[in-house]
Simulated assay, not measured.
Amino acid sequence: MLTLTNLSRLAAGSALIAGTLVLGSPAAHAASCSGGSSGMNCGNYAPTGLLNHPCTEPSATCGNRITQVDTLRSTYSWFKCYVRGEKHSGGNNVWYYTNGDDHGAYGYIPASRVFTSVDPAPGLPYC
């Protein structure tokens, strides 16, 4: 049971939002990224849908149909590489390529869903 006494024992930077415990901010989690030229393990928001193209909506660049190919359910995941696609809500055009947790299908998620300190993540290869 979550009580005021238990809350006071949580690490600094924790917050209780709408009944859900959130530990720290994305920037705080960025330090947990590790890896390099063969891929990167990093914290991320979950669940996050993996898309078949690095786009937020149909366009000339990505075709007429954007589909979700899988879902990233883990909050610490492996990312193979990055690409540049359409600008997303994070304010840049970096998308990370990874495999999903439901079916193992590969797809793209916007950098705004991955806890990196800078995008693209240093050392991670371009796809």
Rank of each mutant, 00 (worst) to 15 (best):
T75E: 07
V83N: 01
F79R: 04
L50Y: 10
G85M: 12
G85Y: 08
R73Y: 04
T61H: 00
S59A: 09
C62F: 08
T56Q: 09
T71N: 08
E86C: 07
I66E: 01
E57G: 11
S89E: 12
W95F: 12
S77T: 13
C62P: 05
Y82W: 15
G91L: 06
S77V: 13
P58M: 07
T67I: 13
T75N: 09
S89A: 15
T75P: 00
V94N: 01
G91H: 08
C81G: 08
C81W: 04
C62I: 08
V94Q: 04
N64V: 09
F79H: 08
K87A: 14
S89K: 03
A60P: 00
W95L: 12
E86H: 02
P54N: 02
F79G: 08
P58I: 06
H53Q: 13
N52V: 11
G85L: 10
L72F: 01
C81V: 10
T75W: 06
R73Q: 14
N52W: 07
S74D: 14
T61Y: 04
D70H: 03
N92L: 07
E57K: 09
A60M: 08
D70L: 12
S59L: 08
V83G: 02
Y82F: 15
K87L: 13
N93P: 04
F79A: 06
C55E: 13
R84W: 13
N64I: 04
Q68I: 11
T71Y: 12
H53K: 12
C81S: 14
V83E: 06
T56Y: 02
V69W: 02
L72A: 07
N52C: 09
T56I: 09
Q68E: 08
N52G: 05
R73N: 15
H88N: 09
N93V: 10
V83P: 00
S74E: 13
K87I: 15
R73L: 15
T75K: 06
P58S: 03
Q68P: 00
D70C: 10
T75M: 02
E57Q: 09
Q68D: 00
G91S: 05
T75C: 03
T56W: 00
C62R: 01
W78L: 13
N52D: 15
N64H: 03
C81T: 10
G85N: 04
K87C: 00
R84E: 12
L51R: 13
C81K: 03
P54W: 00
L51N: 05
V94C: 01
T56F: 03
Q68V: 15
G63S: 11
F79Q: 05
N64Y: 07
N64F: 02
T75Y: 06
N93L: 05
S89Y: 11
